[in-house]
Write a protein that binds this DNA or RNA. Sequence first.
DNA 1: GTTTGGCGGTGGTCAGACCACTGGGTAGCC
DNA 2: GGCTACCCAGTGGTCTGACCACCGCCAAAC
Lengths: 235, 235
Amino acid sequence: MTDAPAKAWRIVLDRIENDLMSGELGPGDRLPPERELATTLGVGRSSVREALRVLEVMGLIRTGTGSGPTAGAIIIGTPSGGMSALLRLQLAAQSFAVEDVVQTRIALESAVVADLATAVSPDLVDVQRVLGAMDDTSLSPEEFVALDAQLHLALAEAAGNGVTVAMMGGLRDAIEGYVARGIRRIADWDDAAVRLRHEHHRIVELIGDGQADAARAAVTDHIRGYYATVTAPTE
Amino acid sequence: MTDAPAKAWRIVLDRIENDLMSGELGPGDRLPPERELATTLGVGRSSVREALRVLEVMGLIRTGTGSGPTAGAIIIGTPSGGMSALLRLQLAAQSFAVEDVVQTRIALESAVVADLATAVSPDLVDVQRVLGAMDDTSLSPEEFVALDAQLHLALAEAAGNGVTVAMMGGLRDAIEGYVARGIRRIADWDDAAVRLRHEHHRIVELIGDGQADAARAAVTDHIRGYYATVTAPTE
DNA sequence: GTTTGGCGGTGGTCAGACCACTGGGTAGCC
DNA sequence: GGCTACCCAGTGGTCTGACCACCGCCAAAC
C-alpha cells in the first residue's frame, strides 16, 4: 500500500516539473523528442504524450511538427490560455458559479486599480491607447467588447503582476460565452456603450489622481453593472 | 488553411466540455468507457486518453480501475488540485514570480475578509475551530503551518465564493515548497508563532466587529509579514 | 447458507506502424 | 558556378492491437 506504483504519465510530468524547477529547463528551451523521453524514463511513448498534452493545455509548451527550430515541444515564456481553459472547464462542470467568477474578478481588478493609484509613476501608455480607441462611436458591439477586454487586461499588465494578469484574463475568457450571448440582447447598445466609456475614463482618471479607494469603488461598480447589463437586460 | 483539421484529442475535449455545459454531464456522472468514447467520436483510444488525462490533472474527473460504482471516469463535484497544479507548473516554468503570487493572494484574501466583515451573519464556526486549535503551544512548526493553511481556507469558504477558495488554495499550494523550506530556517519559531496567533485573532476580531478596512489592512500585513519571515529569516 | 472461483468490464500501459509536416542537403540541370 | 527540384531524416499526430491489474458480481462447489 505504501509503495503505490507511480503512474507512468505522472513520472513524466514530475520529471519535467523537476527539470523546470531546477533550471535545467527554461522558457524557450526544447524538450527532448517524445521517443527519446520515453526510452530515457522507461515508459511508453503514449504515456509521454499524455503528460505533454497536459502541459500543452495548461499553456506551458507549444508543440510543432516537422523539423527545424519551430518543431518539437517548446517551453513557452509567457503563459496564456491555461488559466482560461481551467476556469472554463470548471465553470462548465458546474464547479464554479458565474456570480463567483464575477465577484473574484472584482476582487482582483479593484486591487489592481488601487495598486496603480498608489504607484509612483505607473505606465499607462497601453491603457490610454485602448481608452482612446474605444471612443470611436462607430465600433460594433463585438469590437467594443474586444477592446474592453484589452483595456482591463492592460490595466492588470500595468500593475506588473503576471499572476493577476493570467487570472483576470482567465476569468474573463471563462465567461466570455455568457457575455457574448448577453450582448446580442441589449436593446439600446449605444446607451450602454456611452455609460461604459464614461466609467472607463473615470476609473483611469481616479488612478491618475491617486485616489485608490475611489478607483476601487468605481471599478467595482463598473464590473458589477457590466455583468448586470449583459446577463439580464431584456426581462 | 481555413479548415485546419481539429486535433483528435481536442475533439474529445470539446465534446466533453459541450456535454458539461449542456447539462448532459454533471457532477457525479460517469463518463462513457474510453473504448466507447473512441468509437463514438471516431478517434483512437489514445486520443481519448490524452483528453481524459487533461481533465484528470485539472481536477475535473477521477479515474478508477476495476468495476462497480467507483470504476471509470467520474466527474468530481468539488474541484481541487487543478488550480494548484496549474500554478505550481507555471511557477516552476518561471512564468510566474513568487512575489506576484504573494501579492495576488493578498488581493484575494483581503477581499475575503472585507466581504466577511460586511456580511450580515457570516458562518465562522470552522474559522473559530481552527483558530482555537492553533492556540495549542505544543504544535510543531509543520502542524502549525498546516493549520494555518486550514484557517485561511476556512475564511475563504466562509465567504462562500468557490472560485476564490480554489484560487487561494492553489496559490498557497503552489508556493508551499518555498514556505516549507523557509520554516526550517526560522531561529526562534516560538516568537513567530506567537505573533502569527495574535494576528489571526485580531483579523477574526475585526471581522466580527464589521471593520472591513481594518481587517483588510490587517490581513495584508499578516500575509506580507508571513512571507517576509519565511523567505529571508536568517540573514 | 457460506465460501470460492471464474468472468466480464474497466482503466493503465506498451509496442509497432503509418501519416503529415518541415527543413536541409544533395543531385541534377542550366 | 549557380540555381532548382527532389529526396530524406526527424519530429509530432494518430491509430491499432495486445496485454495486464483491478474490482464487483454471480454461479458453482462445499
